[in-house]
């Protein structure tokens, strides 16, 4: 039997909330799929669209950007900027024909370990039927 496809997810997590949220999930021994490569960033507002495109280009099947809930940003308004920027890149990725399920954004606080695991579980579930992402992958 062919092995089931396991998608690779690159998750850009804000240090102050989502990254801590994922740690909480870890230390609380919550079970969630191992498909995530987490990259901790200082703020969701510091994520350049280039990071997202590069993740897809280097073989990510899905990309997650996760930051603090509106109003909770450590830098006051970083996540508001992120919200705008990510909305645009989301629309652009959809427009060029990338499956919309492959790119997601979430608000996860440091206390929301459970929410984090749920998001990852759902993400993996949505990615599995799509198969590997080859559209933006490097063809050098």
């Amino acid at each position: 039997m062919a092995e089931e496809f396991e998608p690779k997810i690159v998750a850009f997590l804000c240090k102050w909330c989502s990254s801590a949220g994922s740690d909480l999930a870890g230390v609380s021994r919550m079970e969630y799929p191992y498909n995530v490569v987490p990259i901790t960033v200082m703020c969701s507002g510091s994520i350049s669209p280039l990071y997202i495109l590069s993740a897809f280009s280097r073989g990510a099947d899905g990309v997650l950007v996760s930051g603090c809930h509106p109003g909770d940003c450590h830098y006051i308004k970083g996540n508001f900027y992120a919200r705008r920027r990510i909305a645009l890149i989301n629309k652009l990725l959809d427009f060029i024909g990338l499956e919309p399920q492959r790119f997601q954004m979430s608000w996860v606080s440091a206390a929301e370990g459970t929410k984090y695991t749920e998001i990852i579980k759902d993400f993996v579930k949505e990615l599995k039927p799509l198969g590997p992402q080859t559209k933006l992958g490097r063809d050098l």
């Binding site: 509106p70 645009l88 954004m105 979430s106 608000w107």
Partner: peptide, 16 residues
């Protein structure tokens, strides 16, 4: 400029 500003009511229906 567009991405150096925001509004509180910017849409976030795409965010989980």
């Amino acid at each position: 400029s567009l991405i150096s500003c925001f509004k509180d009511e910017d849409p976030e229906d795409f965010i989980r």
